[in-house]
């Protein structure tokens, strides 16, 4: 009797938790992920300014970041399910 009530209570708690997660946590998490991506994009843009046609005063100093940033971009579009991305010369 007690065990049955306990199981019911636990199930109710779980669904409540799920509800809370979907309603509040998930959008918050998505927002944070969006923010993380935005920050990465800003860095990529700053380092690869000349690819956008803008002069970059520290282009030479940041040469060794470029392979890593392109690799990040590659990993990202693969995760998104695209085998290829952009024009040749952007990624692959």
């Amino acid at each position: 009797m007690n065990a049955e009530r306990f199981a019911r209570l636990r199930a109710a708690w779980r669904s409540l938790e799920r509800y809370h997660d979907e309603l509040f946590v998930a959008p918050w998490r998505a927002g944070l992920q969006r923010e993380a991506r935005r920050q990465q994009d800003t860095l990529r843009a700053l380092v690869m300014l000349e690819s956008l046609g803008v002069d970059n005063p520290v282009a030479y100093e940041t040469l060794d970041l470029i392979p890593h940033l392109v690799a990040d971009l590659h990993a990202w579009h693969r995760r998104m399910g695209d085998e290829e991305f952009g024009d040749p010369g952007v990624c692959c």
Partner: peptide, 17 residues
């Protein structure tokens, strides 16, 4: 991604300064 890396590097190396 190496061809793209090379292109990005070249563009950066060609920038003024």
């Amino acid at each position: 991604v190496m061809p793209a890396v090379r292109q990005h590097l070249q563009r950066a190396a060609d920038s003024p300064g």
